[in-house]
């Protein structure tokens, strides 16, 4: 029997008159690799902030691992790992000090925190610069460190906001392999990304948000076949030819532009 890892009911966030996220009803089952897609400004980061307790919803509920986030905030936080927008790093610590710190904040004893920090630094190939402050890391190194910090306590649900942005191909490969191993062990991963190829290769399920509304949700196969609930062009005809995620995404969010819109003065 599937267990729901992440569920939202009518999740809404307003900033004054502007509604950034409107009545989003998400369902992510345990062990799914869920890609959350949307154009710029669609509400992805706002949603992930509400899912991780970084932002209070204007309306609606969030349940993580069956627990209501508002009512069991601390308990939920023990079981989740987060790489937020901005990465939540402390720039004036070294990578080792930061991981040590994070591990202990999640309740690991000193020896375990130090041991896992060492292993993670080696795994992420960050161990060769033990005295370098995080502020002097490159963007890719900071991303890897943020990822290491998010998993040091062995979370059951992992929230990643643009985890591959600015990461080189080698590091991205390492991170993907790690995430896939985590999925194999039953961890749920919820990630946002602009890179559709990454989502297509990694994720088993996808949700698409546009203008603050969840416009499509389902397994990758369902979406590409056009049978997912809420999917545009839903025909119910399972024999229809599968389309790529990019095609589906562009059709769903209305991103296909006519050539007439091209700027004629460009050489």
């Amino acid at each position: 029997m599937d267990v729901v890892a992440i569920a939202t009911e009518g999740l809404t966030r307003r900033f004054g008159d502007f509604t950034a996220v409107q009545e989003v009803n998400l369902t992510v089952e345990a062990g799914q690799f869920y890609g959350f897609l949307g154009p710029n400004g669609a509400g992805k980061s706002t949603t992930i902030k509400m899912l991780t307790g970084l932002m209070v919803p204007s309306a609606g509920r969030v349940r993580i691992l069956g627990l209501d986030l508002a009512a069991h905030l601390v308990e939920v936080k023990r079981h989740i790992g987060v790489v937020p927008e901005g990465m939540a790093l402390f720039g004036r610590l070294t990578g080792a000090e930061y991981l040590n710190f994070v591990g202990r904040m999640y309740g690991l004893d000193r020896a375990t925190a130090a041991q896992r920090a060492q292993e993670l630094l080696e795994f992420m190939e960050l161990a060769h610069q033990p005295r370098t402050l995080i502020t002097d890391y490159s963007h890719g190194m900071q991303k890897k460190l943020a990822m290491a910090a998010a998993v040091i306590h062995g979370p059951k649900v992992l929230f990643l906001d643009e985890p591959f942005e600015g990461v080189d191909a080698i590091a991205a490969g390492t991170l993907k392999a790690m995430l896939q191993r985590m999925i194999a062990r039953g961890v749920t991963v919820f990630l946002t990304s602009h890179v559709l190829e990454i989502v297509e290769r990694l994720c088993t399920h996808v949700g698409i948000i546009n203008n603050g509304r969840l416009v499509a949700q389902g397994s990758l196969d369902e979406l590409r076949s056009g049978v997912a609930p809420g999917a545009l062009g839903e025909t119910g005809d399972n024999s229809a030819k599968k389309i790529s995620l990019e095609q589906f995404f562009l059709e769903t969010v209305g991103g296909v532009r006519s050539t007439a819109q091209e700027l004629s003065w460009l050489g």
Partner: peptide
């Protein structure tokens, strides 16, 4: 800086 987010999502 952005590190404050860690305090918010840590238990």
């Amino acid at each position: 800086g952005a590190g404050v987010q860690f305090y918010l999502f840590s238990p």
